[in-house]
């Protein structure tokens, strides 16, 4: 469970304060797949970094599974947008997946088993001996996902993970994330700027306003649990929900932007 209560984040420059997150409150119940969308520059990444404990909040409270976040919480994994930079280029694929487990003090045999399972789940069993930079972008992001799976988190945060891969790969990765979520039963917060992606993936879409960020819309996605790239996307209900989110974002964008919008 993920709780955000009256979250504010202000970047403090000398003589000038830039508000990135205004007043944000929402709760993601245990096991839910929630997508966060918003216009570009609305502080999505800031929000995610605060949730991950990488950035202190200015005020307000963030709790993960009942514990207030002050540092990166245990049982929480993050998949970053910049796959090329979040994998260790000097470690082979398997070692990349195993490193967090090693940090937990887990034994070699168990590490190997978890890593193998995770790599198999993302369809990369055969490249575990390669270096990340020898793989395509999509495959690199799969490695990052495998690392998150092997970590066995209770909460998984994903920051626009597919923004930099081509459309074809993207569809495959979306389905992969769905299946991983269904199998692991994690609470998943997925940040994206792509409305289609948000509606296709989530059980719920949270639309953020332009900065200073607040929740502009909180929409339940009542599509069937079994999603399919062709069938779901041609479902009239999908089109309708997509239209709602789109309209809301356009409305938010037109609203007068407050100070510091350019940050």
């Amino acid at each position: 469970m993920l709780e955000v209560k009256n979250l504010h984040k202000v970047y403090d420059g000398h003589g000038r304060r830039v508000t990135a997150v205004g007043d944000l409150t929402f709760t993601v119940p245990e096991g839910q797949f929630a997508c966060v969308v918003g216009p570009s520059g609305c502080g999505k990444t800031t929000l995610l970094r605060v949730l991950a404990g990488l950035l202190p909040a200015t005020s307000g409270e963030v709790t993960v599974r009942g514990t207030p976040v002050t540092a990166p919480p245990p049982d929480l994994a993050v998949v970053f947008q910049e796959y090329g930079r979040s994998l260790f280029p000097w470690l082979r694929v398997r070692a990349n997946v195993e490193l967090p487990l090693k940090a937990q003090g887990m034994g070699r045999a168990q590490r190997r088993e978890l890593a193998s399972e995770a790599l198999e789940a993302v369809g990369l069993s055969d490249v575990d001996n390669a270096y990340p930079w020898q793989l395509s972008g999509g495959m690199q992001q799969r490695v990052a996902i495998a690392r998150a799976i092997a970590y066995q988190p209770k909460v998984l945060l994903m920051d626009e993970p597919f923004a930099a891969v081509d459309a074809q790969t993207r569809a495959d990765l979306e389905d992969l994330v769905r299946s991983v979520w269904q199998r692991l039963g994690v609470t998943l917060l997925f940040v994206t700027h792509d409305i289609d992606e948000a509606v296709y993936l989530g059980q719920r879409v949270i639309v953020l306003s332009a900065s200073p960020t607040t929740v502009a819309e909180d929409l339940a996605i009542d599509l069937p649990a079994e999603r399919d790239q062709l069938a779901t996307r041609s479902d009239p209900r999908f089109t309708e929900l997509r239209g709602q989110v789109y309209a809301r974002i356009q409305q938010v964008k037109r609203a007068p932007a407050a100070e510091g919008a350019s940050a």
Binding site: G13, H14, G15, R16, V18, E259, G260, S262, A263
Partner: peptide, 14 residues
């Protein structure tokens, strides 16, 4: 503009 000004002053301060 505002952000740039904030950054410049932060840089000179640093």
């Amino acid at each position: 503009m505002v952000a740039v000004a904030a950054r410049t002053s932060r840089v000179t301060g640093r």
